[in-house]
Design a binder for these strands. Structure first.
Lengths: 233, 233
DNA sequence: CCGTATTTGTCCGTATGTATG
DNA sequence: ACATACATACGGACAAATACG
């Protein structure tokens, strides 16, 4: 059985008694959800999970309540917990929030810009240019992610960082996410250059605008993609 | 004892069996925290609460895990649950997030502006002018709250609305919050007029900027207030 | 429509860890 | 430093609601 495997994975955490079973389970469930092993809409069975992880239902229930507050699952009384499924409308709304947060990150970063930060940002954008020219999406994606994460983290507002990641994570629950992942590497990196210049100028207003627009354009591409998909249906 | 009182309050919810004990307790605990009946830093005792509300500890544990994810309490393993206490730094960070979200709300609202919305917004600002002239903070405060809530809600993005309120709520956990509640009713309403004009113009960029700035200025007032307070100490 | 099986909601007991004299 | 008191972490049992044949 796989049971032992699952167990050993958790026992690694249990041996180090610094974290509770609840939080270990929460992390694990979050991972399963974000990787898609637990699919959107799927029901989470407390008994199955307690057998799978070799725990009682208590910690599992606590973990799912936490995930509910984070918006990753939905709890329906007397029916169970379900992996949250994002509607197109939900995804669009999230892009607006993400744009707001990313714009703010851009502003904060511009106001604390220095040579070191600028060098790293420039390096990433340059590298993305190289990769984009080859049209290699698989190489572009991690760089793109690193660029965005670096901006948000370097803005120096931990609350903002946490919120930004929370919403980026939630987008994983949107089935049509893959629709937009491709499409315009060179275009995307032109936007990155505009952001980079704004950051380098130290102009908070300008940085906020370019960063906001970058996500807003991504949102428009999502809308166009799902519109196209629905016309095909 | 007060026990019966507490019980009856919850039984009102229990009679309507549509909500679980957990979510009823969560709402109640959130209310106690936000009203300050449970003070920041205070420990939440599972047994006390289970006696107080006449439930077992299970639902209480689940409710507190949910509140932890919402950032209202802090859970320390084997030690207990504590009402979260916000540092000055936390509060400042929250203002940045709030500014970003409020700015986005302003933008969205500007883009869907109509006569009806404009009439209500104008009414609120006009009324605030009247009250501000009398210098009555107690009358100004609810109007101010209604104005902000109306903007955010009318922006038509439920995700954004929920997030905005989440962060406004969190600011209740900041002890020095009262420091800034007064101070410049007329000044504040001048900012409101600028926001109103931007909304009326339908210019999203302009609306976002004015709304963002309104919160950014509030943040500056907070910083000035706590700086002043710390100099006095 | 009814009865059964399954699942969730709630409660309580025990073990373990923490604070305090 | 030690022992005691106390709180939390987890497990397991029972009752109630739901799903399914």
């Amino acid at each position: 059985m796989d049971v032992k495997n699952e167990l050993s994975h958790l026992n690694d955490l249990s041996v180090v008694k610094s974290v509770s079973l609840t939080s270990a389970l929460e992390k694990e469930l979050e991972r399963l959800i974000l990787t898609g092993e637990l699919e959107p809409g799927e029901r989470i069975n407390e008994i199955h999970l307690s057998n799978r992880f070799g725990t009682s239902r208590g910690p599992i229930r606590e973990a799912t309540r936490s995930l509910e507050a984070k918006g990753l699952v939905e709890v329906v009384r007397n029916r169970g917990v379900f992996v949250r499924r994002l509607s197109v409308q939900d995804a669009i709304e999230i892009y607006d929030v993400r744009a707001a947060l990313f714009g703010q990150a851009g502003r904060l970063l511009a106001e604390r810009m220095n040579d070191e930060l600028l060098a790293e940002l420039t390096r990433l954008v340059d590298e993305m240019d190289v990769v984009a020219e080859r049209g290699s999406f698989d190489d572009y994606y991690p760089l793109n992610l690193a660029f965005h994460n670096f901006i948000v983290t370097s803005a120096g507002n931990r609350t903002l960082t946490a919120e930004y990641h929370r919403f980026v994570n939630k987008l994983h629950l949107f089935r049509a996410r893959a629709l937009v992942q491709g499409g315009g590497l060179a275009v995307s990196n032109r936007e990155h250059r505009a952001m980079l210049e704004a950051l380098a100028s130290g102009d908070g207003d300008r940085a906020q605008m370019t960063h906001w627009r970058h996500v807003a354009l991504a949102k428009r591409r999502v809308i166009a993609a799902v519109d196209g998909a629905s016309r095909i249906d």
